[in-house]
Write a protein that binds this DNA or RNA. Structure first.
Length: 442
DNA sequence: TCTGGGGTCCTAGGACCC
DNA sequence: TCTGGGGTCCTAGGACCC
């Protein structure tokens, strides 16, 4: 049998914003999406006041009246706080699967295997471990967490949802009787994997709780829905179907809504070039190479009075690459193939696709040293490419160690007409030396 | 005036092959 | 007149997640 713990940070982004502002400890805090668009995180105090996902302009007045603290997203801060939390979790097991920026599965199966085989009860021991996690993580990082235990990932998630409602922030469904009781009061729509579309379909079948769903024959579920829902039912019954998957990334996407609607192709080119350069950098950091690149544009869907257009164009590479110059060329040629004048564009994006390990790309380069067509616009003989990769190593290093990224490609432009607004940004407390909080003893 | 970003997996259907 | 069966690969679109 498996034992999973799901550790989930409470109101993660809002909690990050509170860490270095003790004066906000008891205040309602909300965090906005990019471009200060929607509310994407709320502290416990803010939850009754503001609904998740509400456009900011619609709640701004309420927020001001209620004295809600509002912040723009600060992913540099959240990323660093996340790293600290995940490192702390390594105290209890080396089997930490970072599932998202604010949650991780701990696989405790091996630790408890012997005791289970001996038929000993593990409940008390798990509870003690859970308490330790719930106490230590906030102590070390400032971020409060909740812990749920279960024999499958789905059940650990479910236990975690219940834990969040409890004062001790801790709950387990390892025990069969406790599990049955929990499932019987757990609404079907809150199950991990049941979303907007599935919920009404289940409800039409008269299913209301997780227990109802778990009682259905998995094969019937498969026939009526799909293998995804079949696995869900099995997981609810304690049969682990989601293993230790460590799938390699297949895509890297960089996209943004623009601060204003753009019509000038020169502005759009600067934007997509910037996204491309950012993506290429992430590619090199992951030691991967992309086989193709996709550029997408979109007009503003909230303006039905304006003509709508949302094209995308793909350009394949002769062989996989992490070379910004090659990627930029691909991106600009894809852009020019889809761009049409007389539309007002609101969003753009670049996706690096079909990623392969960097070694594979290097081996291909070695095997196919000669380009088929040396006049090709994508021409890049291997020597100059190798030199450029050396150059990127240096440039990436310089940009990583500086705050704003001083070295960039001319194609990215020197101004950012597309930049999004973030009116309420907090400082990068933990990653910018000038903003490290100072504590005085006097 | 103002509405996020980044992923994954699965299925169905078409093209193509023997 | 009667027009198979089985497979792979690819892509678009749907659904879900945080």
């Amino acid at each position: 049998m498996k034992i999973y713990a799901l550790v989930d940070c409470n109101s993660f982004f809002a909690s990050c914003e509170k860490v270095f502002r003790p004066d906000w400890a008891e205040k309602p805090v909300v965090v906005l999406s990019n471009n200060d668009g929607c509310v994407i995180a709320r502290s416990a105090e803010a939850k009754p006041l503001v609904a998740m996902g509400t456009p900011w302009f619609r709640v701004k007045k309420t927020a001001e009246r209620e004295g809600i603290v509002v912040r723009s997203t600060n992913f540099v801060l959240y990323g660093d706080m996340s790293r600290r939390v995940m490192e702390t979790l390594g105290q209890w097991t080396s089997d930490v699967e970072v599932y998202s920026i604010d949650e991780a599965f701990l696989d405790l199966s091996r630790q408890y295997q012997l005791r289970i085989e001996e038929g000993k009860s593990i409940g008390r021991s798990l509870a003690a471990l859970g308490r330790q996690i719930v106490e230590t993580v906030p102590q070390w990082t400032g971020i409060p967490v909740s812990v749920g235990f279960g024999p499958t990932k789905t059940l650990a998630k479910l236990a975690n949802r219940i834990a969040k409602e409890r004062p001790d922030r801790l709950f387990g469904v390892m025990n069969r009787k406790i599990r049955e009781r929990a499932l019987k009061t757990f609404p079907i729509g809150k199950i991990w994997g049941v979303g907007r579309k599935l919920l009404p379909q289940f409800e039409r079948l008269g299913l209301k709780t997780a227990w109802d769903l778990s009682r259905i024959d998995p094969l019937v579920v498969r026939r009526e829905f799909s293998i995804v829902q079949e696995r869900l039912v099995r997981e609810l019954n304690g049969e682990a179907c989601y293993g230790e998957d460590d799938p390699q990334r297949k895509n890297i996407q960089v996209s943004r809504s623009f601060g204003t609607m753009l019509t000038d192709p020169a502005d759009l080119e600067k934007a997509v070039a910037t996204f491309a350069a950012r993506g290429a950098r992430r590619l090199r950091r992951l030691e991967r190479a992309a086989s193709a690149v996709c550029v997408s544009l979109r007009t503003n869907p909230f303006r039905p009075d304006l003509p709508q257009y949302s094209p995308s164009g793909v350009v394949g590479f002769y062989r996989p690459t992490a070379d910004t110059v090659e990627i930029l060329k691909g991106v600009l040629s894809a852009f020019r193939s889809i761009y049409k004048p007389r539309y007002a564009y609101k969003k753009g994006g670049v996706t690096l696709m079909n990623l392969v390990p960097a070694e594979v790309a290097a081996a291909q380069q070695y095997l196919f040293d000669e380009e088929p067509d040396s006049d090709s616009p994508l021409r890049s003989d291997s020597t100059s490419r190798r030199r450029r990769m050396d150059l990127y190593r240096t440039v990436d290093h310089i940009n990583d160690s500086s705050v704003s990224g001083e070295i960039f490609f001319a194609a990215e432009g020197t101004d950012r007409p597309w930049a999004s607004s973030s009116e309420y940004a907090s400082p990068c407390w933990t990653t910018d030396l000038d903003r490290v909080p100072v504590v005085r003893a006097d």
